[in-house]
Design a protein around this nucleic acid. Sequence first.
DNA 1: AGAATTACCTGAGCGC
DNA 2: TGCGCTCAGGTAATTC
Length: 272
Amino acid sequence: MKGEIVPELPEVEVTRCRLEEELVGKRFVRVVSRVTKLRLPVPELLVRVLPGLLVRAVVRRGKYLLLDCGEGWLLVHLGMSGFLRLLHGESPPARHDHLDFLFEGGLLLRFHDPRKFGIVTWIAGDPGEHPLLNKIGPEPLSAEFDGNYLFSACRSRTVAIKQLIMNSAVVAGVGNIYANEALFLSRIRPDRPAGKLTREECQRLAVSIRTVLEDSIGAGSSFRVAEETVSYHPLQLKVYGRRGASCTVCGNPLKETRLGNRSTVFCEDCQK
DNA sequence: AGAATTACCTGAGCGC
DNA sequence: TGCGCTCAGGTAATTC
């Protein structure tokens, strides 16, 4: 598909930063829901529980956004096609504008998601114990995620390394695009059984995952993400979406295969 | 336990 | 023009 914007971890992180700047310290005034079900049901109590509450913090766990509202947490996942916009003042909702969160001062946070793969829900207790969050592995940008951790996680695993790093129980928030990019950068074939990687390869891959994510967050930070939409910087993607095009390193045409029914692009000459 | 498969959803693109 | 089909993909649930 052309021009498809899938929010990956960098997009979610840049969105988090914008929400943090704009919303922390602000109070919900009104919530309007025009949808009953996204990937999960959108609880009706949102419209009752949020007004009057103050946003204390905005945090990210994998691709989940969490607004700390004191007595509970608003959890948002953008799924495949979701994004958040920040608007000032009244604005009539467009198609697929499913939820509006109005804040004091006239600020409007709007959730838009054509495919409804996103999630908006309320967590009353400790978010770390919530079923959606309690099995998620370490953050890829944290110190906990390193070559040694990844090597341990690979032990006795027969799945392809690409599928392993896309498993959120192993590492949080690595989606298809950056899995492809990180494997290219670390010169490892995506279809290698995870258990066959050496410790040194795991070290390279862990560094590459961090690098591609951090680079993208840096590139994205110059864009007005949460106000408009999330945006990729396609020029910096070296393999994803480039089947048949020339490898940026050796010039040979990139190959495409499927792993776990996901598009997988790599260079058979550079990646071993 | 781990691996493989399915389900959820809509818009775009394609063949006819 | 439009119908029907396929594909895109995050993640949890289900099945093997």
